[in-house]
Write a protein that binds this DNA or RNA. Structure first.
Lengths: 181, 181
DNA sequence: ACAGCCATGTAACTCGTTACATGATTAC
DNA sequence: GTAATCATGTAACGAGTTACATGGCTGT
């Protein structure tokens, strides 16, 4: 029974694989906090739609704890996740970078606008870096090998390094644009 | 007449903004070559659909040169592009990174699979880097300030640096995974 | 002659979004 | 009591994909 699910489904399954049952609402919060850096954070409505589907496929199970419906992975869900991890071909990352896209058309803008484009991006980078750093520190204490958040921590470090490097690239571009090199 | 077009429309308009009229087929080739690194390369069918729409909006004009229909920017198209560049809010980049997503779930895999995951990604990075480098060298000769491909060159350098840094991150992660740090 | 590329499109479909709607609980 | 947060969903829609179909031109 090879159910072809989109990657986002497995991303949500993945969030549930850390053990704690989560409601749709909580799932969205986790996605906003961490998943959005490496994948996407689906819209609220999409989360619930997805939960219905996963439940329909028997990959998750509602655990009614009163007012809110939390879901936890079923054995089938764990298996599906394992199978996905081991057999699904991995594509190359897709980057949608509005700043790079605009810089490509830098010739259509006046120099001051190009400069502001990059400076604004530096600010945005700073902000995102801070947000990710917060996540990173929240993982401290469980980030040693064999601990629960070992891999999330590694990925967070990856992301932090990525932001830091992008910052230096942008600064470099700004310099090159000023003195034509 | 604020026609709300998706970013991809403006990306295609942008490709036409370099002066040369292009057919749908050629547009797709350019997108495959350069645009895909910073945005997406739309499917062939999507390119034609998009061209119809842009033509319908009067932003591009078919220049019939025999067997194939090439399109060039109209004045309205140029204006639309300028307006988009100067007034549309710029979102933060969206990254869909299947490798990071899987590494997040590294605890569900055996160590050897995690290792292979990262090693395979290194190979893929190498390949993409080579492809982009080819683009970069093809721009040489027109990449000086005030020349046509100045900004595309800057963006290509940005991309190259990004790939190179990602390589060092992955190598770092591999090291950290081996000796638990 | 046949393969491969150039060239253009249609149809069906999925993913995911925004807008909208509703109501319970909690904090001040 | 009232604002914010928690909680869940429906409906309409748009962007973009894959699969399919077609045909001319080019090189060997």
């Amino acid at each position: 029974m090879g159910q072809e699910l989109p990657v986002t489904s497995f991303a949500l399954l993945g969030l549930l694989s850390f053990g704690e049952p989560l409601t749709g609402y909580e799932l969205k919060q986790r996605a906003d906090k961490t998943l959005r850096f490496y994948w996407v954070s689906p819209a609220m409505s999409q989360v619930y739609t997805e939960l219905d589907r996963l439940n329909g496929h028997g990959l998750i199970r509602p655990v009614g704890d009163g007012r809110a419906t939390a879901y936890s992975l079923t054995d089938a869900g764990r298996t599906a996740l394992d199978t996905w991890l081991s057999t699904t071909p991995i594509g190359f990352p897709v980057l949608k970078h509005p700043v790079a896209l605009r810089l490509l058309l830098g010739a259509l803008m006046d120099p001051e606008s190009v400069r502001r484009l990059l400076l604004d991006h530096l600010d945005a980078l700073e902000e995102e870096h801070a947000a990710l750093e917060e996540v990173r520190t929240s993982l401290q204490g469980a980030d040693a090998p064999d601990q629960l958040f070992r891999y999330p921590s590694l990925v967070a470090d990856w992301g932090l390094s990525y932001f830091e490097h992008e910052k230096t690239i942008i600064e470099d571009l700004l310099r090159r644009i000023e003195d034509g090199s």
